[in-house]
């Protein structure tokens, strides 16, 4: 018992370990009830299977979670990422046009401009938070409301379909038998990691999230650090938007990226980054995103009736949060201890 207790304590100090444990548990559950889950087949030189699906469908969320991590670590939150996804898709689509097999704007330029608009959205949030001093929830709520409106204006309130094939590569293309979107996630992760851990940006972000007043006394420019964090978060939402619209081959101002902001925040929380700011981990957030995605895939593949899907999802998230909670672990710890006392 004591050993078990000490293992729990030791594991407890590493929040990343708990998220990985939760992810492994979900996958294990699948292995037991649905052995086919882990089967990967090669078709036309592409890998297919539920595992690949999790990564492929989870790609937008993983990218989103990376951006959200930065904002959360400064002690803020960005509610507008879902609508920014819709805006990015709409901008890219309208630049490419509706003609079959051709594009009005060179693909590279269309994507770059769409990402630029997304970054601008993030920049706008950053200005509201850092320069005007609006609280993050309220500041990003403004774009949350406005974003879908803008996206619908661009698409004229309709779902715009794309017929230009090269654009589909981001969401549904394959490279060396793996989905292209996975490479995008990997690239975003590496760039984000280098940019935060090989410059002082990451240290500034954590420092501000922990104690912004003391950070000011050390000369950190809080305003610019926050501005950059929100801008990068917008950019990540843009990348996710490109992947999504490329995957569904259309732009839908109403539904693209719907509820993604909540999943992104949840991914960050599941990954062990405190929502009050401070220490952050991209790897943790990616695992968090994978938990959410594999949960969704599991629910669909095990045939859970759609009306209870939300409940099952909530239940699992609740369990993971319990595992991560220090108070809960203490409770379990003292429970084990008192049982030990009873045995003696």
């Amino acid at each position: 018992m004591k050993k078990l207790n000490s293992i729990i304590q030791k594991l407890g100090s590493n929040r990343l370990a708990w998220s990985m444990f939760a992810l492994a548990a979900i996958l294990l559950f699948n292995l037991i009830v649905y052995p086919e889950f882990f089967k990967i087949t090669i078709l036309d030189g592409h890998l297919y299977g539920s595992l690949v699906d999790i990564f492929r469908n989870g790609a937008p969320l993983m990218v989103l979670a990376i951006g959200m991590t930065l904002v959360v670590a400064t002690g803020g939150v960005d509610l507008s990422v879902g609508p920014v996804i819709a805006v990015t898709g709409a901008v890219a689509t309208s630049l490419i046009g509706l003609e079959y097999g051709s594009t009005n704007t060179p693909l590279f330029l269309a994507v770059a401009l769409a990402l630029g608009v997304a970054a601008l959205c993030g920049f706008w949030n950053g200005i509201l938070v850092s320069r005007i001093g609006i609280q993050p929830i309220v500041a990003t709520l403004i774009l949350y409301v406005a974003g879908r409106g803008v996206a619908q204006m661009i698409t004229n309130g309709k779902i715009m379909r794309i017929f230009y094939e090269p654009y589909f590569v981001f969401g549904s293309g394959y490279f060396l038998s793996l989905p292209v979107s996975l490479y995008i996630v990997l690239l975003v992760y590496i760039v984000a990691w280098l940019f935060t851990r090989r410059t002082s940006f990451g240290l500034y972000v954590e420092s501000i999230g922990i104690n912004s007043e003391a950070s000011r006394f050390t000369g950190i420019n809080e305003k610019n650090v926050k501005l950059l964090a929100y801008t990068l978060c917008g950019l990540c939402a843009g990348i996710a938007g490109i992947i999504i619209s490329s995957n569904v081959k259309s732009a839908d101002g109403n539904n693209a990226g719907l509820w993604y902001e909540l999943d992104a925040i949840l991914s960050v929380a599941l990954g062990g980054t405190s929502l009050s700011g401070g220490r952050f981990s991209f790897a943790g957030s990616i695992i968090g995103a994978l938990i959410i995605q594999s949960l969704t895939t599991t629910i669909y593949s095990t045939g859970v009736p759609p009306q209870v899907i939300m409940l099952v999802k909530a239940l699992v998230v609740f369990l993971v949060s319990l595992l991560q909670s220090e108070n809960f672990r203490k409770m379990i710890g003292s429970l084990l201890n008192s049982r030990k006392g009873a045995i003696q």
Binding site: L203, E206, S207, I210, N211, E213, A214, S215, F217, T218, G278, R279
Partner: peptide, 13 residues
């Protein structure tokens, strides 16, 4: 600074 807790240390670093 005078107030070590709020202006000085960055506690979780």
């Amino acid at each position: 600074p005078e107030d070590r807790k709020t202006e000085g240390i960055i506690s979780d670093l």
